[in-house]
Design a protein around this nucleic acid. Structure first.
Length: 462
RNA sequence: UCCUGAGUAGCUCAGUGGUAGAGCGAUCGGCUGUUAACCGAUUGGUCGUAGGUUCGAAUCCUACCUCAGGAGCCA
């Protein structure tokens, strides 16, 4: 049997072919006098392949009953199309109905709302929009690895199950094999996790950063790319409880180097998708966000705006713009403030750095002013924070002091402190939200629509 | 978790106290190298759930559920 051709390969053909085999799902079918047009899609490309099924086929009556959603295999000739709209089509010599469908198939030829498609998450990749989103997702993940591998970074698989329960990166999902109906108890009646599976409390990771630091202090430049779990009851278009995060960590690197890599990475990813997913980006520009392509190109063309937290606060206050929440030094910037900076004032991605130490986690390096730490956030229009990172505190005394100030016991972080005890080096890293990056390059406004099967509060059906 | 809004046919929606509607889809027929085809007919409903007000509720009230937008948390 001849090998099957993907729809993408068939459409890219440079010459007619006498004998081809294609497989896929029927997007739509139209009857003509003596034959039937079938649009065949196999997800290899946004476009479908037109198949001509003539009434001379022995199973033509069955072919005429084919409805959207059915799967078929076609053997025939790839020929130049007589009609407009496509260069190639397949004249079927043999059409096998692999799996029929029926009128209860929920996807129609017409457009559906993303909210409806979310309810049929198992079928939505068969739509143009979601097929495109997930092809881009695959390409974007590849580009992430390409970026780091080209630059000599080592990919590290940090653990999914972790015992670090106080990183300050949000609520955690507990991992346990304890019988909820009959848990072991300590003397004072509390659940005794020392008798749990790992002989201690364990959780799904909220960040691979601490482990990545250990590897950076050995392999110099590393990155992680994997799932992350936060048990936050967040109900927004840009939060999910399971998401993927990219976390580079670099030894002998300071805040400026960190900001350079973050900016380079974001631009690299945009450029890669622009070049390698042109049809998908065009679709998003047409049906999802009319300003998408102009915005992506604009971001590629100019440097990100860099501004210290202090300068940002001054700028926001000086502007006289009335905000719902007041701008005050020492508090986190509100979403409306970030939006104003990226969308109204600079109209491009903005990297804000050197935040007050009170509002940032213990591991960030204290600046010489004694008031700020080397934090940096990359904010992008429409989404807000897409990158969060810092130069890490590499001085043992300083790190221990930070821990105490945050109410943490240094004894719980012995291995992490060892990194400062033995051959400490300045190092820095950041986290890039993979889905947020995907939202940015596709223009898709809801994180639930860039994850195959999204996990959000009250929702884990699929 | 808080604030706001919305749940009516498979989908998108109209219907503000008096017989449940349209477009699309689907089905059947016609026409046609068609391509979000076209023409005609047919099909289609616990009006989110449970209470309440009223002679009468899709419509007014209460609670709950679900979804969306915004806020907080952050990636």
């Amino acid at each position: 049997m001849i090998p099957a051709l993907s729809v993408k390969e068939a459409l890219a053909s440079s010459a007619p072919r006498d004998d081809v085999r294609v497989q896929g799902w029927v997007r739509t079918r139209r009857d003509s006098k003596a034959f039937s047009f079938i649009e065949l899609n196999d997800g290899s490309s946004l476009r479908s392949l037109q198949v001509i099924a003539q009434d001379s086929l022995p199973n033509y009556l069955d072919v005429q009953r084919l409805v959207t959603g059915a799967s078929v295999e076609v053997r025939g000739k790839l020929v130049p199309s007589q009609g407009k709209g496509q260069t190639w089509e397949v004249i079927a010599d043999e059409l096998t109905i692999v799996g029929p469908s029926d009128d209860s198939y929920p996807l129609q030829k017409k457009g559906h709302t993303p909210e409806f498609l979310r309810e049929i998450a198992h079928l939505r990749p068969r739509s143009n929009l979601f097929g495109s989103v997930f092809r881009v997702r695959s390409r974007l993940a590849f580009a992430v690895h390409q970026f780091f591998q080209e630059r000599g970074f080592v990919y590290v698989h940090t653990p999914i199950i972790t015992g670090s329960d106080c990183e300050g990166a949000g609520e955690l999902f507990r991992i346990t094999t304890i019988d909820a109906k009959n848990p072991p108890r300590t003397g004072d009646g509390e659940i005794d996790y020392a008798r749990d599976f790992f002989a201690r409390s364990t959780f799904l990771t909220v960040s691979g950063q601490l482990e990545a630091e250990a590897f950076a202090c050995a392999l110099s430049k590393v990155y992680t790319f994997g799932p992350t779990f936060r048990a936050e009851n967040s109900n927004t278009s840009r939060h999910a409880n399971e998401f993927w995060m990219i976390e580079p960590e670099m030894a002998f690197c300071d805040l400026n180097g960190n900001m350079d890599v973050a900016e380079e990475l974001v631009k690299y990813l945009i450029r890669d998708v622009r070049v390698n997913c042109p049809e998908e980006i065009e679709l998003f520009g047409k049906f999802v966000d009319k300003g998408l392509i102009a915005r992506l190109d604009f971001v590629l063309d100019r440097p990100f705006q860099r501004i210290s937290y202090t300068e940002a606060v001054e700028l926001l206050r000086a502007n006289g713009q009335s905000f719902e929440f007041p701008v005050e030094y020492g508090t986190n910037l509100q979403s409306e403030h970030e939006r104003w900076l990226t969308e109204k004032h600079f109209k491009c991605p903005v990297t804000v750095f050197n935040y007050p130490k009170e509002i940032k986690p213990f591991y960030m390096r204290l600046n010489d002013d004694g008031k700020t730490v080397t934090a940096m956030d990359v904010l992008v229009p429409g989404i807000g924070e897409i990158v969060g990172g810092s130069q890490r505190e590499e001085r043992l005394d300083g790190l221990e002091a930070n821990m105490r100030r945050h109410g943490l016991d240094p004894a719980d972080y012995k291995w992490y402190l060892d990194l400062r005890r033995y051959g400490t080096v300045p190092h820095a890293g950041f986290g890039l939200g993979f889905e947020r990056m995907l939202m940015f390059v596709t223009g898709v406004p809801n994180i639930r629509d860039v994850i195959p099967f999204a996990r959000t509060p009250g929702s884990a059906e699929f």
